[in-house]
Design a protein around this nucleic acid. Structure first.
Lengths: 217, 217, 217, 217
DNA sequence: TATGAATGAGCATTCATTCAT
DNA sequence: AATGAATGAATGCTCATTCAT
């Protein structure tokens, strides 16, 4: 046990895990670079600094490698997004301001490398692995939507938002935030400026609040 | 359905074109079934009822075949959508009702086979053919958004909508219409009921109008 | 008959022959450029300014096309060479001088485009068309060797050369003339200067005469 | 024949090399049988008793496979020829007899399977791989010629041959030896008898010596 | 007769996957 | 556990050759 605290000890006792992580990380890099079919197990192995059969020792299949990679990335991306939404758990004074902040940071995350790669890698394999969509979405979009719905429900109960179906409202808010950029960013093909992000996220919040804010009358 | 030529005339003078169309149609079917990489030119040929080299006689490359197929589908899908939006050119009495109708039909089209396949086929090849995104979006999303923006501008001028940035408003309307289904339909992996379509499209219009309708005061 | 004398008449009545010649010429050009396997019937057709099936109308096969082309070229190259050797039919005063002239001109011809192409095209297909070697050599090398042997026999009878086997002598003379350049010219890969040609042909004649000239004693 | 390692040692430490050699040998066999274009990598693999990808693991390309095969064969053929010429390094008593022996054995080697195949395979690809001619000739013809030239220079210095340009003399000797058979053997298409070989090589030496032997006066 | 279009057969090359070490 | 080497299967593409006009 004592030996597990030394650096050497870590790499010895956690060697497998470390190597597994290295392989998953390398896999995501390569898949994101080339796409599923175009990515070679060879290239993944090289990126991870191991030999090809080693990859197979850890992951039985190229398919399994892909699945695990996507799931893991999905978890990590979701965590990032949920952390942002969690801001709404604190008591909210200035709702528009807080929402705009949340929306902006959410949007920025969704446009990040990992999020985008995760999305198109998943979409790209509808035909081959249709269930992956569900596996990934249930870990990301759905969870984020539900988190939002929870916050919206609270805000409704506290009288800051008008009564509504929280899930649908959450879906619409997310759509307002991320939708307009889908077209503008062309999946990362075109650089989107920070100003553009701000414009879109602000507008999303404005529209959302106009539709959902409780009457102040 | 369109029969501008006699049967003989078609097969005589448009024989090439017919075969080209047959190949493009077959290609779309196969690409939609398997994805770009997984689709074999062989299979496309069989689907089109011709021999493999015939495909190469019409399209120099598998890549070219893919591009042409996507472009053509994009045009046709866009036309369908634009026709729906064109409904708004006529004088509008009951704006909510008309919008709901337009939104519903748009949504149904966007969830159709062709639209969905077109979208994911395009997305799936960002890495390989980054320019295809632009080529397809400029023919579809952008055009549809602009058409909507035009209608919105007119509705604003006629006092039915409040002053706004028509393009942004159009983007938001489209997002409200199509966004929520992205998650629910899982890119066609799950069947979406007509009722669900109606719910989503109606909700989209409600939210949009709350945010954008001119004050009736 | 009268119409056959006009230009139009020729191209009308000899149209087939003209076209056949054009095809054969084009074929030789293309074969010489690419080699048998690499040459496409398409390319031959283009070079001849006709459509592919037209080539097949005149020559049943790619193989036939090749054979005819080579045979025809062989005839024409042989004629050129034989004409040079014919110089030795006239009474010879200064044997060394005349031989050197013949040798030089022979060598220059053998290094020409057509000769070289003919040789390597033939050699290159030993495996596929072994009989072509015989067909071509009997029209070229053998005939040239025999012509030389005839002259040598005459020169022997006139006392200018010592008694010998004329055929073997002819073979050796040809070897002395063309052999050394085989290595130097690398089949046309390297340019050979006129001076080099002269050196080699002169040396060939010197050696030949030293070995075969009748003793002047 | 060369057994510098134990059988076990060979298969253990030189396993790769063995397989590489097997592939090269098989490649030469197949190329010699079919020619470059007609030879299939498949067939090479079968001949070598390995799978197709194994061939590609050792040689990146069909082209590379061809080049390496030719180069290796060139080296081996050259070695054979040089060993024969080396006989002339020993003090020579009866020059004609020794030369006739060398000439005969040289001629026999040059008419052998490997030599002939090497030559025509090289020639056959002038158009595609022009540099191969130089690569092969510099390893074979040039080296043999130079070796001969060296011997001739020594024989001149020892007074057995008359002063001359040794390189040109060597070229002529080689031409006299190999030239006449070029026509007779038709590149291996026709079987050449031992007697014919002897006739030609003897005649070559006679002619060469008549032209180059030092005057005994 | 000349041709545009269509086709069947073939081939190099790549890659996920598995042994033997 | 890790790897070098080997393999089976699959696919894009080309080309000689033939119909239908």
């Amino acid at each position: 046990m004592a030996s597990m605290t030394t650096a050497a000890g870590r790499s010895l006792s956690h060697g497998r895990i470390d190597k597994r992580q290295a392989i998953l990380a390398a896999a995501f890099t390569v898949f994101a670079r080339r796409g599923y079919e175009q990515a070679g197990v060879q290239e993944v192995a090289e990126e991870a600094g191991v030999a090809k059969p080693t990859v197979y020792n850890h992951m039985s299949d190229k398919e399994t490698l892909f699945r695990e990679t996507l799931i893991e990335t999905a978890e990590s991306v979701a965590a990032e997004n949920l952390a942002i939404i969690d801001r709404l758990r604190q008591p909210v004074e200035d709702l528009p301001a807080v929402l705009e902040d949340v929306a902006y940071r959410l949007l920025r995350t969704c446009c990040g490398e990992r999020s985008r790669a995760l999305r198109w890698l998943t979409y790209a394999q509808v035909a081959r692995f249709p269930d992956l969509i569900e596996a990934v979405q249930s870990r990301t979009t759905s969870r984020i939507r539900d988190a939002f719905a929870d916050r919206i429900a609270w805000l409704t109960m506290s009288g800051q938002l008008r009564p509504c179906d929280p899930t649908l409202a959450a879906e619409q808010l997310l759509a307002l935030i991320t939708g307009p950029l889908e077209g503008r960013g062309r999946l990362g093909t075109r650089k989107v400026t920070t100003a553009e992000l701000r414009t879109v996220s602000d507008a999303a919040v404005v529209t959302f609040l106009r539709a959902y804010e409780a009457d102040r009358a």
